[in-house]
Design a binder for these strands. Sequence first.
DNA 1: TAAATAGGTCAGCACCATTGACGTAATTTC
DNA 2: GAAATTACGTCAATGGTGCTGACCTATTTA
Lengths: 188, 188
Amino acid sequence: MVLTYLMDIPALQSDPTSEADRTVVRDPLPTQGSLDFRVIELFFFAYREFTGDADEILIRYGFGRAHHRVLHFVNRDPGLTIAELLDILQITKQSLSRVLRQLLDESFICQIPGDEDRRQRRLYPTQKGRALAVELSEAQVRRIESALAKTSDEDMRPIAAFLKAMASDRESAREWFERKDISWKDPE
Amino acid sequence: MVLTYLMDIPALQSDPTSEADRTVVRDPLPTQGSLDFRVIELFFFAYREFTGDADEILIRYGFGRAHHRVLHFVNRDPGLTIAELLDILQITKQSLSRVLRQLLDESFICQIPGDEDRRQRRLYPTQKGRALAVELSEAQVRRIESALAKTSDEDMRPIAAFLKAMASDRESAREWFERKDISWKDPE
DNA sequence: TAAATAGGTCAGCACCATTGACGTAATTTC
DNA sequence: GAAATTACGTCAATGGTGCTGACCTATTTA
């Protein structure tokens, strides 16, 4: 009669899922039922193609998406500090370090101590880093321009407004949009 | 005089980057120069928030994005085969296996042999799997509806057209949109 | 009966992210 | 001027997601 005290402890069962929960569901979630899946799925497939363009190029350099993101923002905002970059990317410094190390070692990026605060290691692209950033962006812009080929300036407004509304929960994103004037307020 | 034959082989240098390539670049890539970065960056920040909503929920279940994607498409198209799922997700069966194994072991999904072809293991959600899929989609739909709150039916057209054009390079995506009627052709 | 197909699995590897702990140099604060 | 804070670097361990390659079973098809 040893160990009978273990018998009724649910945590020791391998799978606590009830019979009801295991019931097979055969009907699909409809495209437009109580939930509308259209934008969810369009967004998923669209973003996959969007990143795929750059991914193909990155492979040739032995890099991944993380390298791309760092290279992108360093080129868009040369002289930014590590802290600013971490804030934009929303990752930890340990995550950044490996990726940044490679970009530094291979001379796509360089570090220059801050003038006022010499603890800072401000990040700048090299010519080589600039060239790669441009190559990557060209690929993405090609897809975007192709997708927007038949879009009027008028129709561009709701598209930008939608993306901006999706993105603007986070202060760091709002601040970036403001500082870099990401808007369609007055095209000409 | 041993090993002098190694001296002029570029591949043996630790860093073949030229001095010119190493030159520091201090000017930022402008938002709207020869390349327009606005959509690129809006898309990046928007997608990060979009996936973040689901990520928070998934952590509570010990799952990641890969689990979400499998669960999503199994719920949207119950009875699909492994091959069909791989085609939609564009991954290898080895990548799928770990993730699918967990969803099966924890009874979020179940497999039923095909009626005509008994080699197939068609995938169906359980009640439990359906509940989680709905929970995840509700979070994403909340953000989307909030972002589209002030958008007219009229303005929805260009948004959908843009996303669809971005996504439709791949046959598997086009086929999905068609079969699941992902469109805004006639709202009412 | 032999070949092709649907799927499963094992092993090993790469990439990208995490937390936690510890170190160094520069700046601020008291 | 000493102490605390800040900016950044790094080491170690872990988890999730993808890959290739190889090999396996069961079933269907030729």
